[in-house]
Every structure is written in structure tokens, then in C-alpha cells.
Design a protein around this nucleic acid. Structure first.
Lengths: 205, 205
DNA sequence: TGTAATTTTGCAATGGCTGCAACGTCTAGG
DNA sequence: CCTAGACGTTGCAGCCATTGCAAAATTACA
């Protein structure tokens, strides 16, 4: 047995990956809307019907892998400090994720990010993902302060943080030129987000 | 001539309204996904093709009228106080809208709100609307502090406020039972949102 | 009344998405 | 090694949203 998976599963995974690769390549070259499922499956050399065995929708192929950042985030939330307030804990988790040396976005990930930012149809999906992540963070936060944190307050707090980031990011990437600069300079993005959160929150108190 | 519009425009408006009414009625009784465009046009007694003359998409029929609240909001932003900070101005605008006696949601509006909250396909559209509104608020805020407010900071600030509200609202309406109570008691909703904003922002400083 | 403008409609086609049943390929048990 | 059942892939038929195009119906106006 080579690896954990049997031949069958490996084959299935290969098909799935072929679909993802073909999709990203085609989306990048022809554009999302201009690429049909048939195009993707042809490039991946599988039947059109097979696409929907692996993905629930066309956009799903772009939101394939689970967000690693989120795991890290909730992991930090799982261990609150003795005298830490919910807001402080969230802030600490944010910093952890921001400075974690997660792989700095490969080629395909950058393509994906660009596609999402450029394609309205995909932004909806991205937002859905964000809202899901938000719910998960709220859950983790409530677990960190069992019984002593109002759910609505927790959700509002998390919403404030996510909203701050989304606001900053959308403005940062609203200009194509600036967006290009950002893509080339991850450090800069970190600094901008850092500033956005800390200075914004400071102004609120 | 009866009214400002000619017969032609009145007739067109009537057709449009018939589509909106039919759509809301059918969506409410059968559900959004279970209702086809053909159903709606049949109920409105027009050709299916006509639907797309009036609305760009199926969901568009639910996002028909422009958001009055937003106008009020930006109107307040247009007149900042002498020593008011951006955050204070936003907070004041929020309170204005919250306590403005806009008609307290008619029957059809409540149905629409429920549909959106219950139908994932529609939530995407709602979020799009929210983000558009957010951009507009940012624009108004920047106009209120010309030259002295960083665009990214402004967008982050507005994002924080909107995010707080969205967070609070999603949690408030996540439970169907609570949601029903809220729908019946607008005062309660105001109070909850009031608390969410003020207490959340207080915890951040 | 006749002509131009505008709205409504029919028709045909594209493309995302789904249920179903068949077909082949793996896996596990004997 | 062989076989029954599990699983991945495929073809097919079909629903539905959406769109382009051009004809038909309706309204406006000279």
C-alpha cells in the first residue's frame, strides 16, 4: 500500500486535482465567465458530468482547499489568557495569523485571488466563505468564555473585526495599480492591515 | 394628462409592479428556489420574456426599491460637527437612522426580509447590496473630512461599523424563534443594535 | 390617419445543474 | 484466485435562468 489511500482514492484525488488545475488555467487565460464547465472537463480529460461529482458548483472549484488561516485563528482562541478580554483575545489571534509564516501564496493562489477580486460572480462566493468563517470564529470565542459572553455581543465583536479587515482590504485593492503593488509585497499588506485594525479600534473607544 | 407619466409609462410601471407582487406572493408561499420565472410571469399575466425586460435577474425582483435608509445616513454625514471625529460622526448618523420614523416595514417588506434570511441564494445578493452601501458611506465620509482622512482608514472604520451590525443581526436572526419575536417588536431590534454598537465599540478602545 | 418610438412577445440557443441508470474498476472476504 | 458488493465515471434526458434577435402589439405625435 503506497500511502494512506487505496488506489481508488488516489485516482479520485487525481481527477479532482486535474479539474482544479484545468479550471484555474482556463479561468486565468479566458476569464471565469467565458470558460464553460465543458471546457474545463475537456482540458481535464473527463466527462462533463464528472465535474459535479467533485464540486457542487462552478465556483466551488476555486474554493477548494480549506482555509488554513482559520484553523490557526481558532486554535489561538482556544487558549485565552487569564485576564484577557474577548477583544484582546481576538486581537492576539489576529496578530498570530498575520505573522504566521504560512506559505506566502503560490502562483495558483495569487491567480485565484485575482480572479475573485475581478469577477463579481465570484465575490459572492468569497463573501459566503467569509461569513462562514465568521460564524466559526464566534463559536470558538464563545467557547473561550463559556457562560460569560453574550452571543450577540460576541458576534458583533467578531463582525467588527472582520468588517474592519474587509473594509481595509476592499479599499486597498480597489485600485488595480495599488492592488498589483500589494500582491508583490506581502509585508506591505501585513503592515496595512495591522494599521487598519489598531488605529481603527483606537478611534472607536 | 393624468399624472406625470403618460399612459405608456404607467402601463409599464403597472407591469413591473405586477411582477414584483406576483413574485413576492409566490416566493412566500412556495419558496424562492421552488418558484420559476414562468410561475411568476404566469401569475402576473405577462410573457416570461417580459420578466427580463424589467429585471436583470430572478433575485433582482426582490431588491427593487432603493434603500431609503442609506440616503438619510449619507445626509447626516454631509454635515459633520465642528469638533466631531469620523467615528463620532458615523455613530451619530447611525443613531439618526435607527431612530428615524421610517415606515416600520410593511407586510411585503417583512416577507422580503424573511425570504432573504432564509434563502442562501438571496443572501449573496443582500451582501452585495450591503457592500455597495458601504462604499457609498465611505465616499460620504471622505467628503466630510476632505484631505484629512486616509481612504483605507475610512473604509476600515465604516467596515467596522457595518461589520458590527451585520454580526449582531445575523446572530439575532439565527434562531427562527428569536427572529419571529424580533420581527414583531421593532423597538427591541433598535435596542439590540444600539447595545451591540455601543458596547462593542466600548470594548475595543 | 400614418409614422416613429416603445413595450411586449415568441423563438431559439447557451450553459449551469440534477436525477437516474448503466458501466467499469477497485476492495474485501472467502 | 475469484466473486460480490462498493465506488468512481459516464451518458442521457431534462429543468431552469438568462440572452440575442426580430416580429408583433401598443402608444405617441404630427
Amino acid at each position: 500500500m503506497s500511502g494512506t489511500m487505496g488506489l481508488r482514492e488516489r485516482k479520485k484525488a487525481r481527477t479532482r486535482q486535474a479539474l482544479v488545475d484545468a479550471a484555474i488555467a482556463l479561468f486565468a487565460s479566458k476569464g471565469y465567465d467565458e470558460t464553460t464547465i465543458a471546457d474545463v472537463t475537456a482540458a481535464a480529460e473527463v466527462s462533463p458530468r464528472t465535474f459535479f461529482v467533485h464540486f457542487a458548483s462552478k465556483e466551488d472549484v476555486l474554493f477548494d482547499d480549506p482555509p488554513l488561516k482559520l484553523e490557526l485563528f481558532t486554535a489561538v482562541l482556544a487558549h485565552p489568557g487569564p485576564d484577557e478580554t474577548p477583544a484582546q483575545l481576538l486581537l492576539r489571534a489576529f496578530h498570530s495569523v498575520l505573522h504566521a509564516d504560512t506559505d506566502p501564496m503560490g502562483q495558483s493562489e495569487r491567480i485565484r485571488a485575482n480572479l475573485i477580486l475581478q469577477t463579481p460572480a465570484l465575490q459572492a462566493g468569497a463573501v459566503r466563505k467569509v461569513l462562514e468563517g465568521q460564524r466559526e470564529i464566534v463559536r470558538a470565542l464563545l467557547d473561550a468564555f463559556p457562560g460569560t459572553l453574550d452571543p450577540v455581543a460576541a458576534s458583533a465583536l467578531v463582525g467588527a473585526m472582520v468588517g474592519t479587515l474587509v473594509g481595509a482590504i476592499t479599499m486597498l485593492y480597489s485600485d488595480a495599480e495599488v492592488a498589483a503593488r500589494m500582491a508583490a509585497d506581502p509585508q506591505r499588506v501585513r503592515a496595512e492591515l495591522e494599521t487598519a485594525i489598531t488605529s481603527t479600534w483606537q478611534h472607536l473607544g
